[in-house]
């Protein structure tokens, strides 16, 4: 025997009923109600046709300006990305200078032994048994170049981060103009 459902209950079950998601017993109860209720039958007809009407919904064609606008808004991002590489030129020059000064493995070894010697001299100067060590001019130059390299790299990284965030996202006004 099928349960007698009220209209309000049937209305809640109509979409699951149309989608075939109700149990056999519930579906039978809904079917029995629809056979006797004109209002709910009209609602059922709407529920059945709605997905088809949704899929048949007509939309306007995209304006011819859409594709050029999209590609146009991407072009500055591309140019910015290409320009961003030129930011690396000062870093490359500074890195080249440092590498030239170090002169490969021998230069590195000389730098390490020099730094170790400086530290030892500093330690004996701290103990009051030696004069203040003299730092070679070339080491000062190297230190300056390293500091400059770090500052330039940090600045350029911040520029690149800003470009990555805003480069490919044109403003609303830019899009309107496009």
């Amino acid at each position: 025997m099928t349960e007698t459902l009220a209209c309000a209950r049937v209305r809640v079950l109509l979409e699951p009923f149309v989608d075939g998601e109700l149990s056999a017993e519930q579906a039978e109860s809904v079917r029995a109600h629809l056979a006797t209720c004109d209002d709910c039958r009209l609602q059922h007809d709407q529920a059945v046709s709605l997905p088809f009407r949704m899929r048949a919904l007509r939309s306007p064609l995209p304006p011819v300006t859409l594709l050029p606008a999209v590609m146009g808004s991407l072009a500055p991002a591309q140019r910015n990305a290409q320009r961003a590489w030129t930011l690396l030129i000062p870093e490359a020059v500074l890195a080249g200078f440092i590498l030239w000064y170090l002169s490969g493995i021998e230069g590195l070894a000389a730098l390490a032994s020099g730094a170790w010697g400086d530290l030892q001299t500093l330690a004996t100067w701290g103990a009051g048994s030696a004069p203040l060590p003299e730092i070679p001019t070339a080491d000062v130059l190297l230190l300056g170049a390293l500091a400059l390299l770090s500052i330039t790299a940090a600045y350029h990284l911040s520029v690149l981060a800003r470009l990555a965030d805003a480069g490919a996202r044109p403003t609303l006004a830019e899009r309107r103009r496009a």
Binding site: S59, P60, L61, P62, P63, L66, V70, L74
Partner: peptide
């Protein structure tokens, strides 16, 4: 573009805003 613009139009019901949203979707895709 046809489906994206149609989707944007059905959601916003305004041709200017639909173009704006469609363009934003494609920029995000890029």
């Amino acid at each position: 573009q046809r489906r994206v613009y149609g989707f944007a139009y059905q959601h916003l019901r305004d041709v200017n805003e639909a173009q704006d949203l469609a363009q934003e979707i494609f920029v995000k895709l890029y």
